[in-house]
Design a protein around this nucleic acid. Structure first.
Lengths: 336, 336
DNA sequence: CTTTTTTACTTAATCGTTTTCTTAAACTGT
DNA sequence: ACAGTTTAAGAAAACGATTAAGTAAAAAAG
């Protein structure tokens, strides 16, 4: 590896001069600067991020904590798209991303925060995780730039999708199509779920619609088996709903299975709607009506916020940003 | 941040002694070692990976190049599962993973290799990429531990799924079910595709089956629109096939759309099969018969291979490993 | 023509580790 | 008691960069 020392030797200058020339500092003669830059290029020089980071206390590296029930969150349809978008923006700005090690198997394992300090991350992004984990709380209280996605810590920056608004939009669309018996298979009891539920009830109330309490069933996100089972129950009721909402498109497909099993068709016999807008959802028949999350915007906004927190930590304020989803009209909600 | 210097001060020893004690070197007295370790724990000491890596030339960091037509490969159903499994194994062994920056937007951008040297990666894993990219070739020729997934570079280590064998298994299953008019919508012309095609022709030949040349159509991986269009063509032929193979499960769902559009049903009117075994494929109806790729094994093997290359670079041989897929029987292939 | 300022560079310290080489003390055996 | 060996610690250099402080020469000011 060619280092500044090599360039210095070849140019007959000191290492300091090389450093300053390459970093375009002011107190270097124009010719020396040019010579040094040319030599650096010719010798194939690239800086050593480790040395630089050690000295400057800036690693240009961002820690990513994307964990989902023991898995990495990489395989999560929604979050992997958010991360993809996040990655693109920070990479364009010269940052790299490294996963925060979440192996629980090592004897000398570090906490998330310890690991972040160990690697010298300039900032951290968290998503898709159990936010009650003490290690996550420790992170959230640390003095390090941080952005969370789809969760808000007290006074820390976050980007959340507008679950309340999106759900309201979806519900209004369904009501407008004449549905009154609308059931909701929702996900685990999280902030996201509560927001959506609130919108569900609000729209019902606004439209003077009453539904049985047990039209709302507490299932899981991304579980086709659970949503199938809950749909079974709903379909076997005497007062079968005319429309069923699911917490995500995966779950909606699980519901679809149950519906087909009962010899029913969507949307002729019953309507359904999903959430998230995963890729496959609008490529199969019947196209599922869903809320498309703007994962690109979410990732981008999280990236931009984190960048500004890292680069102007003092003057940048912590803020909570909200991203709207859009109704993606498929063929799964009938007009009645 | 508490450093060795702080521990040294508190214990009245030199920094060298602290380092040696914490690293369990031999020339340290038992009591001193214990005192130092205890103090380190009490003070919340954790090493600084940057300084350590700088000095030892070992970063415990692995570069990941997962790119797919401009996107990061994170959103790729198959590769994200491989990466997830890979990540788990290397993290258990104290390594972290960092993405190799593939932003093409920066003026001062580095090549993949330059970036890898810049970050001091101990090893690299490549997948899901255009392997003819000169920058990828540069990487493959560099003197750095490397494992590729689903592609073999001359004399470098790789883990590939057994496409030939899997396709043969699938084809034999289909033939055994009585199909003779088997069409194949395949992916782009890559090594993977060629292996599968070879198996397709081999099984046909072994069974004395002849098909029209244009039963084989060259489409794309993971494109529902292309597979839908190609299926349209196949269905409108006078000698319509009884079974259509797709390059992956996504594409199979695209085919399904075309089939439904033509008022046909799977498997009653026509049979189909996918490839990869993505999660959603066996959760919807009709369950698509497919080859389930053992993404866990692929990621694990790639990780283990890379670990041994990094830790015993001399004695470890480069080798090509193959992972079998398994037939996942759904309901999409009829007996005729 | 001296004095001050500016320019262009060098020296040396530093970041937090690891590691080689020394050294002093303690322990051997005779 | 003495040379030789072992043990436990420290001093210092190094990894590759950045940066504050210092310095000599050139340019500007008086």
């Amino acid at each position: 590896m060619v280092s500044m020392k090599d360039i210095a030797a070849k140019c007959n200058v000191s290492v300091a001069t090389v450093s300053k020339a390459l970093n375009d500092q002011s107190d270097i003669g124009e010719e020396t600067r040019k010579l040094i830059k040319k030599t650096a290029r010719e010798m194939g020089y690239f800086p050593n991020s480790l040395a630089r980071a050690l000295r400057t206390n800036k690693s240009y590296n961002i820690g990513v904590l994307f964990v989902d029930e023991g898995r990495s969150g990489l395989t999560h349809d929604y979050f992997s798209r958010v991360l993809d978008s996040f990655k693109e923006v920070v990479e364009d700005n010269g940052y790299d991303i490294t996963f925060i090690n979440c192996s629980k198997k090592r004897p000398q394992r570090m906490s998330y925060l310890e690991h972040s300090r160990y690697r010298g991350f300039d900032g951290i992004v968290i998503a898709c995780i159990d936010f009650t984990d003490p290690e996550v709380l420790e992170l959230s209280n640390a003095d390090i730039p941080l952005v969370t996605i789809d969760y808000m810590f007290n006074n820390r920056s976050s980007v959340v999708s507008n679950n309340y608004g999106s759900m309201a939009t979806l519900m209004e669309y369904i009501v407008k199509n004449g549905h009154k018996k609308i059931a909701y298979v929702c996900g685990e009891d999280t902030a996201v779920t509560r927001n959506r539920l609130a919108a569900y009830y609000k729209v019902l109330e606004d439209n003077g619609i009453e539904v049985p309490d047990d039209y709302v069933m507490h299932g899981s996100y991304r579980s086709t088996s659970k949503s199938e089972a809950f749909t079974d129950k709903l379909l076997e009721r005497p007062d079968r709903p005319t429309c069923i909402l699911y917490p995500d498109d995966y779950s909606a497909m699980g519901g679809l299975n149950s519906i087909h099993k009962h010899g029913l068709n969507v949307p002729e016999d019953i309507s359904i709607a999903g959430f998230d807008g995963i890729n496959i959802a609008h490529k199969i028949e019947p196209k599922i009506t869903t809320i498309r999350q703007d994962t690109k915007a979410i990732g981008e906004m999280a990236a931009l916020k984190l960048l500004s927190l890292m680069e102007r930590p003092k003057s940048t304020v912590e803020e909570q940003l909200m991203v709207d989803g859009t109704l993606e009209e498929g063929k799964s909600v009938a007009k009645i």
